[in-house]
Amino acid sequence: MKKRGGALWVGVVVVLAIIVIVFRDRIHFDWGAFWQQLRHASVGHIVAGIALIYATYWLRAVRWSVFVSPTKKVPAKSLLGPQFIGFTAVAVFGRLADLTRPYLVARRISLPLSSQVAVYTIERMFDLGAAALIFSSALAFTPKDLPHHEVFVRAGVVSLALTLAIAVFAAVVRVAGGAVARFAEVALRPLSKPVAESIAEKITGFRDGLNALSSVREFLVVAAISLAMWGMIGSAYVQTAHAFVETPELAGLTFSRTMLLMAASIGGSALQLPIVGWFTQIAVTATAMHAFYGAPIEAATACGAILLVVTFICIIPAGLVCARLEHVSLKRVTEESEAAAGEQSLAQ
């Protein structure tokens, strides 16, 4: 694992070096304008964005407590530390640390890791569904006089179709999850046995997570929390853009127009590499702001950097404090969660 990780790092550095060498004479970037944008950014808007993001971590803890409530009554405040530590691990070590949260929660509330991985799986699906619903609702009703109106409407329609597909898939999995998992494994096995087994395992985990919601009331509570959380995340994007008061293209950005930026940012973080992924995410969001809104590349890059801090890096101080108070090593717990998940997969 460490050898593969080292090879990956070397490969990334080589690729970045080649890109810099090839395009160094073609990229015109005014560093003075970039720093000026950062200096004049509104601190109040940035703080408001960070406050919204921290509120979503509290909502995540509340939602997780609802997920486990049929099995064990757990106060949301006891799950806040694992949320902080888990997302800090992802910010520092990349997506390989995604299972840190279910691992820490399982250890905290003395439930099997498999049950919390199932919760994690269903949590991801609710996130995807809530985000898609907000995207589609906001984008579908953008004013016709806005630039790139057809792009926004098309994205809204696609997002709405995705939301409906997720709802249908969830209903089918809830009723016949085992059959769906077996069908997926048989269908995909000729292409790749490991991929087929992995997808079947995820479908089973999704079914187990759905089964954890024992009543319609719990489902509606989780759905409402998910929608509120993603509404806050979208508002944090708006606050961050509005912080750049000297750039009208960003300072006047509406919630609906922010949706494409939010989608680009989420896409840029899907395969997050440790540290290096920060810069790729800045590049993705800056390119989106420059292309969709016509913002100058320097302002777009400055906004992308602050956006990374607001939505991703700001959790690190709280996570480090919680890890210190709970005597948790980020590196060790990340390795332990990977090993535990691997052992669980082998056992299955």
Rank of each mutant, 00 (worst) to 15 (best):
V180W: 06
G49A: 07
W35E: 12
R174Q: 07
G277A: 05
Y293A: 15
S265F: 12
L111I: 11
A138C: 13
F152H: 11
G177T: 02
R101F: 09
A106K: 07
L160V: 00
R154E: 12
H45L: 05
L330G: 04
L8G: 15
P194A: 03
F292G: 00
T280N: 11
I266H: 01
S114V: 11
G86I: 03
L99D: 06
F135S: 05
D98K: 09
P112C: 07
R107Q: 11
F126E: 04
L307F: 10
T71P: 00
P82L: 08
A305V: 12
V47G: 04
I313P: 00
I316A: 03
A118K: 03
V238C: 09
A305T: 14
H28S: 15
A155Y: 08
G178M: 01
M259I: 10
V43G: 13
A300N: 05
L79F: 10
G252I: 00
L308S: 09
V276T: 13
A347T: 04
T280K: 10
T142D: 03
R174H: 08
R154L: 14
V157N: 07
G277H: 04
L191F: 11
I18T: 14
W35F: 15
K72W: 08
G231V: 08
I266Y: 08
G231D: 09
V66F: 09
A91M: 02
A295Y: 03
I166C: 04
I109P: 01
A179H: 11
A161W: 04
A288K: 08
Y57K: 13
T287W: 08
I27T: 12
G156R: 01
V12M: 15
S214K: 14
R207A: 10
G304R: 08
T142L: 09
R217A: 09
M289E: 07
E185A: 09
A347F: 01
L146I: 15
G231L: 09
A106Y: 00
R182M: 01
W64T: 10
R26N: 14
Y237S: 05
V22Y: 12
L210M: 02
V186C: 06
M289A: 15
R174N: 01
E326T: 06
V328C: 04
L220W: 00
V151P: 00
V153I: 12
Q83D: 01
A61F: 09
F152T: 03
